[in-house]
């Protein structure tokens, strides 16, 4: 293997890993606080579309980024309101938001770009920029900050407390709802950021472009045992596997089996074959304050 190949392979792997990693860490924040966020897929779709729209309108990527992150944040806000304030079922809310996002992005795409399958071309970022790619830097910062904030700060302690034992946290005067909102909203921002990368990298929005990445991000979060570093490692593993299939198209293993890898691994990890994967104790359970 020559040097150019190694570099190209590394860049390709990182390029694939970024849109898994950011939402995956978002998922960690959300679930550490006790809210299951299946809406990640919808957040990514919305983020990707609005990034494209913002860039298309303004002609610069910063406005696009702002649009994308705002769309992710707004989608997450709906999920937070329904599951935290209204205490409705988190799984159903997530699935409904994914359906809504699917419809809304296609609808708007047809209105704005006169096609329900793809947008006009936007500026975006060139893949070749990777060594100096701001997104890579952002990923590293997010990774460091997330680990530090979740495990070393008062915010993180409180977030984990409302995800593990909201009654106890509540009795200590921690506002459970506020912490849970924070977790879900951070996941919306990070999801928006991750999908902005997708749109910039592809220079457009295309129908269904997120292709289940929100679910893969969730899978990585579980395999990483609800730890940002673990999640990042799982994302990198998925990125490597995918990069490998792209590089060796005619290999003996059909691509579909590589595609299955994240999902099969998740099932194996959940079953406890590779250590024990324990979610936050109150993950998925609405908190009802006792009067």
């Amino acid at each position: 293997m020559d040097e150019i190949f190694v570099i190209a392979f590394t860049f390709q792997t990182l390029r694939i890993t970024i849109p898994y990693l950011l939402p995956s860490i978002g998922g960690v924040y959300s679930e550490k606080g006790g809210v299951v966020n299946i809406a990640l897929e919808g957040i990514l779709l919305m983020g990707a579309f609005f990034t494209t729209l913002g860039t298309h309108i303004s002609g610069n990527i910063y406005t696009g980024l702002l649009f994308g992150m705002a769309a992710g944040l707004l989608t997450a806000l709906i999920h937070a309101y329904i599951t935290i304030t209204l205490k409705s079922n988190q799984i159903v809310s997530g699935i409904a938001l994914n359906i809504l996002a699917l419809g809304l992005t296609k609808f708007l795409c047809k209105i704005v770009f006169n096609s329900s399958s793809n947008s006009a071309r936007i500026i975006g970022l060139e893949t070749l920029d990777l060594p100096f790619n701001p997104f890579l830097l952002v990923c590293l910062i997010v990774l460091g900050v997330s680990y530090y904030s979740i495990y070393k700060t008062r915010f993180g302690l409180r977030l984990r407390a409302v995800g593990e034992n909201p009654e106890a946290a509540d009795s200590l005067g921690i506002c459970v709802s506020r912490m849970r909102y924070a977790g879900v909203l951070i996941s919306g921002l990070l999801g928006g950021l991750g999908s902005a990368w997708l749109a910039f990298n592809q220079h457009s929005y295309t129908d269904g472009m997120t292709a289940g990445r929100g679910y893969i991000a969730l899978a990585a979060m579980i395999i990483g045992k609800w730890n940002p570093l673990g999640a990042a490692a799982a994302c990198l593993l998925f990125g490597l596997a995918e990069s490998f299939t792209l590089q060796f198209q005619d290999s003996a293993i059909p691509t579909q089996f590589i595609q299955m890898l994240p999902y099969v691994l998740t099932i194996i990890v959940l079953a406890g074959f590779i250590g024990k994967a324990t979610p936050p104790a109150a993950d998925g359970i609405p908190f009802e304050k006792k009067d």
């Binding site: 809310s93 996002a101 419809g103 809304l104 047809k110």
Partner: peptide
């Protein structure tokens, strides 16, 4: 796709 939007909204509103 307006009907997909309606489907998503109906589920969200029901819950």
């Amino acid at each position: 796709e307006i009907v997909t939007i309606l489907q998503g909204l109906i589920i969200l509103l029901v819950i």
